[in-house]
Design a protein around this nucleic acid. Structure first.
Ligand SMILES: [Mn+2]
Ligand SMILES: [Mn+2]
Ligand SMILES: [Zn+2]
Ligand SMILES: [Zn+2]
Lengths: 140, 140
DNA sequence: GGTTAATTGATATTTAATCTCAATTTCATT
DNA sequence: AATGAAATTGAGATTAAATATCAATTAACC
């Protein structure tokens, strides 16, 4: 299903569905969790599918553009992504001590953001909400 | 006033109030707007106050820790900061076309975030909410 | 003033991400 | 299936933000 969507997106933009792009897509959807581009690149090397580092980065950008993947944070060490198709949008609580990432979704929060956009004559397209603090386990 | 707060913070932590740290603090509060560490560093060079690149980065971290400054985003090219003391917390709408940054504050949004933290047994310390989209002028 | 631990800064290092460009591949068209 | 134009790939170079090193300096406390 995500392949079909990706193919459509590429078609519209007169871009080509190469085996490298397909390999990145498959690896991204085979893995469930948050990942950095470098991790994705090395996981692909290990699992035998081939795509250069450059292609991994380039394809990730395309996947974000067409809405199959979202960039959820820009950590101190590079960007963090996750596939989103089939999961729906959500935001994150990030523990500064242990690094745990808790996902949440609040309808209310989304509604109020839309309201904020309206008030500012702004067409919201995406957002990153990243709440940093200390998780239950680390609080003790 | 911000000097007093910074001094207190340093005192509590047994850290020293050096002239470099003071120079960074002053430059940060002399400038009203969003800035990258490198910009701050070069602005200081130009205006004659001296602090090495390392000290600028190190001091920024301290200023964030004590709440005088917030990191508001990680752009494609590094972090973006702004001084916050005397302005209060706010979040940002960022236009993907022209780069304009609109500030906003929503009491409701903050309340709901607290609620989300409570539900997840999480102690929220800070957050970054960055809504990307298209501003009124660019919509046409 | 003397002691001590913190700090500075020039420089090297790390590392994510992008760029380069010749060689290759896709894909629409014969 | 062959052709050709345009897009894509990838190895390696490059960029640039941020951090680490560590000898020399400095602030803070007595
Ligand atoms: Mn997630
Ligand atoms: Mn602001
Ligand atoms: Zn934790
Ligand atoms: Zn705009």
């Amino acid at each position: 299903m995500e392949q079909k969507l990706f193919k459509n997106y590429l078609g519209e933009k007169r871009l080509k569905l190469t085996k490298e792009r397909l390999a990145v897509l498959q690896e991204v959807f085979a893995f469930h969790g948050h990942f950095a581009p470098e991790q994705l690149y090395f996981r692909m090397r290990d699992s035998g599918s081939k795509a250069s580092r450059a292609s991994v980065y380039r394809t990730l950008t395309l996947l974000v553009e067409c809405g199959l993947v979202q960039r959820i944070a820009r950590s101190d060490r590079g960007n963090v992504y996750e596939h989103i198709y089939g999961h729906g949008h959500h935001d994150h609580l990030i523990c500064s001590l242990c690094g745990e990432i808790i996902e949440f979704y609040s309808e209310n929060l989304e509604k109020i953001q839309e309201e904020v956009c309206r008030r500012n004559k702004f067409r919201g397209v995406s957002h990153i909400l990243e709440i940093r603090g200390i998780c239950g386990r680390c609080k003790g």
